[in-house]
Computed example of a mutant assay.
Amino acid sequence: MKRTWQLGNALALVFALVANFLTGAQILDLPPINEVSDKYATYLTPAGYAFSIWTLIYLLLIVFAVYQARDLRDPRDENDVPLRLGPLFIIASICNGLWTYVFVKEWVGLSVIVLLTLTATLYAALWRLGVGTTRPSTKDFLMVWLPLMLYTGWVTAASIVNIATYLDSKDVTVSPLASTVVIVVLTAALLFLLLKRNLRELLFSCAWALVAVGLRQLQLSQSTSVAIVALVCAGVLVLAMLVHAMARGLSYDGRTESAPA
């Protein structure tokens, strides 16, 4: 069964990459994703440059896919990641590949369901792997934890934007006040995850998104309050990450020793 999950994880990621390329390159005669995003832009929509984080995430996911399949020919007991993940990464990758197509087709409500499924599946994967509650080896941290945490953090922020986009498509405006409340609640939830689950690197992607939200609001001169709150909350997340890193390093189980190589 382990080999099945290893191959499934790799093939599912290939599906996600190819699907996103075909959609993004407009080979399927679909509108650009930024055109649809701008059509339903809200106070929570980040600046366009923010989506460049996908390049980093995809590169790290490729590393993850190769690493989890490293013993495909000669299975070793110490590599239990595929068995612990089960079908979760496969489901997440399928949702990833489907989302862009669904979104550019302007099936916005369905895109919310797909993205929330992706997000929930990734959190389940983090829980199944014990991310943030055990002390990983350096390799496991860099090639399993880091890719999945950055991925999960970004889709967490993207899910909130997607919901706001859906509301806008239904002529329900998310006001600046509501947007600031959402940002503050998101920040509080992330700090809770940091304290209770040590999901430090997950905060980076969300902080990246919040900076992009703030800068877009300043650039367009739409809402100074949303811009200030987004930038301040991003700063709080970065500060919390730094304090956590100085206190624990790569140790996530309450001890301060460095993780074994």
Rank of each mutant, 00 (worst) to 15 (best):
V184S: 07
P31N: 08
A245W: 13
G48W: 12
V184A: 14
L150I: 01
V238Y: 15
I91L: 15
V226C: 13
D74L: 09
F204Q: 01
F103P: 04
H244L: 05
S251C: 02
L191E: 12
A234R: 11
Y101P: 03
L13H: 06
L218S: 01
V161D: 09
P75M: 00
Y166K: 08
T256G: 09
L11K: 08
T117N: 08
A209V: 10
L60V: 01
D171I: 07
N20R: 08
L167G: 05
W145N: 03
F103M: 12
A259E: 08
A227S: 14
L142I: 00
L177S: 15
L122E: 01
C233W: 02
V108N: 15
N162W: 10
T256D: 13
V114R: 11
L22F: 08
I53N: 05
A209N: 08
A16P: 04
V102S: 13
P32Q: 09
A164V: 11
F64S: 02
N20G: 06
W154D: 01
E35C: 04
T138Y: 12
L177T: 14
S205K: 02
R84T: 06
I91G: 11
T121V: 05
V112N: 15
G214R: 11
I27E: 00
T180M: 11
Q6I: 03
R76E: 06
L177F: 14
S159R: 11
L85S: 06
S169M: 08
F21G: 00
D77L: 13
V63F: 09
T156A: 13
G109D: 07
A92W: 05
K196E: 09
T173D: 10
L126K: 02
V232R: 08
Q219R: 15
T187S: 14
V243S: 08
V108E: 02
P147F: 04
F141H: 09
L116C: 11
H244P: 02
T152K: 03
G24R: 06
K196Y: 06
L122R: 04
D140G: 02
T42A: 15
A19N: 12
L30N: 02
A19P: 02
L98N: 07
E35R: 14
G214L: 07
P82L: 02
R76Q: 12
V243Y: 13
R135A: 06
W127A: 03
L242E: 03
V243L: 14
T4D: 07
Y67E: 01
R197Y: 12
C206S: 14
L218P: 03
V185W: 12
T224I: 11
L250T: 13
L146M: 07
K39W: 01
V36D: 04
V211E: 11
S137L: 00
S52T: 07
R197K: 14
G97W: 00
G254A: 04
